[in-house]
């Protein structure tokens, strides 16, 4: 069935809450009539009751921390951190608590918590509501980071996330919510750490994640008009990272461009570039190229925000440069 990412996430929450009564949803406005700011939790309170769909005060440390504590003691909470920018409010609970229970308790702990959060620029909401931040999260040992780029993946990866016994941060790009595609009916799980080949090609590999996977696909389709066969790899999960898929594609194409909406330093683009240089050096016909946002905050200014985010034109230019090397 064709549905949007927003609908796919909503459907998955319904299915998983139905399947396992230890799954609860908590966050700000999640039990409101409109199902949160984007309607993601629509219909859940009516079906599962306010004891399982819990509206919280505006207290991110307590929301995320309590979700972690509940997970540690037997529930499977799906907490909503409305915007990933609010990580600033609750980082301790993620960084020092949830991520470390398993290790520092010597393997005694299970923390099956999912933190759903909205990422990305493009809505003109400025520096404190538009960040990407997933590289920061992917750098933390003990948590997994998921970045779906389409509705089918959102369903498959969220189902896996909810059933996973480790903490997972599930990043939803706000500019993709309405994007539609065919989504498998019924139960659908996708394994973590398996990238998706979105477009097959032989001339160059374009690596993307979340919205940049979509941008990479658009660039590939424009490039095919010019006779360039680009392969597009969507990482799908950033931690674990499918290093093998990147290297396999590189073996085929000999060239890599990575597109990442994060700020450039210590980005996923840097991570992939490092991987390619370290383990695929002999396969490279040209230097790996990174297309990222700049080392600036996200401006509220729409015209500057458009300049900030990687776009199809910049990807095409990077591909051309790499091919011309």
């Amino acid at each position: 069935m064709k549905m949007s990412i927003r609908e796919a996430i909503n459907q998955t929450l319904h299915q998983e809450m139905e399947r396992d009564e230890r799954v609860i949803v908590l966050g700000e406005d999640v039990a409101s009539d409109q199902g949160g700011v984007y309607g993601i939790t629509d219909g859940l309170p009516a079906k599962f009751g306010l004891h399982r769909v819990i509206d919280t005060p505006i207290t991110e440390s307590a929301i995320v921390g309590a979700a972690g504590g509940a997970a540690l003691t037997g529930l499977r909470p799906v907490a909503e951190l409305m915007f990933v920018d609010f990580l600033g409010v609750c980082l301790d609970q993620i960084l020092n608590q949830i991520a470390k229970f398993r290790y520092m308790f010597g393997g005694q702990a299970r923390t099956p918590v999912v933190i759903r959060t909205m990422i990305g620029a493009g809505t003109g909401t400025g520096p404190q509501h538009s960040q990407i931040l997933y590289p920061l999260l992917a750098a933390i040992p003990g948590i997994k980071v998921v970045t779906p780029a389409n509705a089918a993946d959102a369903k498959g990866l969220l189902t896996t996330a909810i059933r996973d016994d480790d903490p997972v941060i599930f990043c939803e790009h706000k500019a993709l919510y309405m994007d539609e595609c065919e989504v498998p009916e019924g139960e659908y799980l996708l394994p973590f750490g398996q990238a998706r080949t979105a477009v097959e090609g032989s001339d160059i590999t374009i690596v993307g994640m979340s919205r940049t996977a979509v941008i990479a696909e658009e660039a590939a389709s424009a490039l095919s008009q010019q006779g360039v066969n680009a392969e597009v790899l969507d990482l799908r999960t950033l931690s674990p990272l499918d290093e093998g898929a990147v290297l396999e594609s590189l073996a085929k194409t000999g060239r890599v461009v990575v597109v990442d909406e994060a700020n450039p330093y210590c980005s996923m683009a840097s991570e992939i570039a490092g991987l390619v240089v370290e383990r695929g050096f002999d396969l490279l016909d040209a230097p790996v190229k990174r297309v990222t946002s700049p080392h600036t905050p996200v401006p509220a200014t729409p015209c500057l925000e458009a300049e900030y985010v990687p776009n199809v034109e910049r990807v095409i230019a990077a591909v051309q440069e790499t091919l011309d090397y």
Partner: peptide
């Protein structure tokens, strides 16, 4: 300079 907008 237009970088903050309403919320900043």
């Amino acid at each position: 300079n237009g970088k903050g907008g309403s919320m900043h």
